[in-house]
Computed example of a mutant assay.
Amino acid sequence: MKAQDWEIVRRSPLFEKLPDSTVWALVGTQSLAKYEKGVVLHHPGEATKSGFLILEGVVKLLCEGGSSSGALLAIHGPGSAFFVGEALAGSLSTTTAEAVTRTRVLVLDGERLRAALATDPKIARAMLAAAAVNLRQMIDQIEELKTRTAPVRLAKFVLGLSGALSGSDEVALPYEKQLIAERLGVTSVSLSRALRELAQHGVSTRGDKILIHDVVALRAFAT
C-alpha cells in the first residue's frame, strides 16, 4: 500500500478512531482493485462479500427507478467506504456501484471484518460511529433538498470543493454537470439557472472550473 493510500485509510471515518496497529491488521493485506470510468463494481442482486474504501476517484450508487440508468443514491470520493454493512451481514446488494472516474479501491473482505468485530469491541464501536456519520450525512442531504433552494444547494456544493475561508478561489468540478445536477436534486436546466444566479454572488464558470471571486460573500449567501 502506498503511503498516500495509508493516509486516506487513516482519515476515513471507518478507521480514524482506531489505533494504527489495529487498522493495519485489518487492511494491510487486503487487496486493491482498479476500475475505469463507467465500469460497474457491483450489480444489484449480487451477494455482497466485500466492502469498498475509495483511495482514488469517484463512485456513484444507483437504485432502480428514476432515469434509465437508475436513481442516484450517493456519490463517494476518496476516504469514503460503502457496502461495508452489507458485507458484514452477507446480504444481497440492492444498488449498483459504478465508477464515475478512473477509480482505485481497497477491497474489505467481509469474513475478515466479521472475525475482527467478534474479537475486538473497539472495531465494532468504530464501525457503528462511521455508520452514524453516514446516516447523519444522508439526513443532512434530505434536509437540504427539502429546505434549501437550488442556488443555495449549489453554493454549498461549490464551497465544499474549496478550502478557502476568504478571498477568491478556483475549484475544478469533480465530475460531469449532469451528475452534479442529480446530486443536487435538480434538472440540468435548473442547474444552469442556479449557476446564473450565483453570478450575482461572485461566482463564474470557465469550462469545468468554478471561480469564486468572494468566498465570504458566497458563504453568507449559502447560510
Rank of each mutant, 00 (worst) to 15 (best):
G57I: 01
Q178K: 14
L72W: 02
I210V: 14
A97R: 01
L154W: 08
I8Y: 03
L173R: 14
E7K: 10
G65I: 13
G160Q: 12
F157E: 10
G77L: 00
S192T: 12
T29Y: 07
E143Y: 06
L73V: 14
V158N: 08
S69T: 15
A87D: 07
S12V: 11
P13R: 03
A3Q: 12
E176W: 07
D214R: 06
G163L: 06
G65H: 12
D20C: 07
Y35F: 15
L73R: 10
A130W: 01
P78M: 04
Y175S: 08
A220M: 11
G45H: 13
K60Y: 01
G110V: 13
I75M: 09
I142W: 05
I123G: 02
R206F: 03
A97K: 01
L159C: 05
V9D: 00
V58A: 11
L113K: 08
S93G: 03
R112E: 14
K146N: 11
A89I: 10
I8E: 02
E7M: 15
D169H: 10
V100F: 00
E64R: 15
L62W: 04
L92S: 14
W6F: 11
K156P: 00
V215A: 08
G160F: 05
T147S: 14
R104P: 00
E64V: 13
H213K: 13
L18H: 09
R153A: 01
K2E: 14
M138G: 08
S91Q: 05
T96D: 05
V216W: 03
S31H: 09
A130V: 05
K60S: 04
H201D: 06
V186N: 07
V189K: 13
G207C: 08
E111S: 08
T96H: 06
A181P: 02
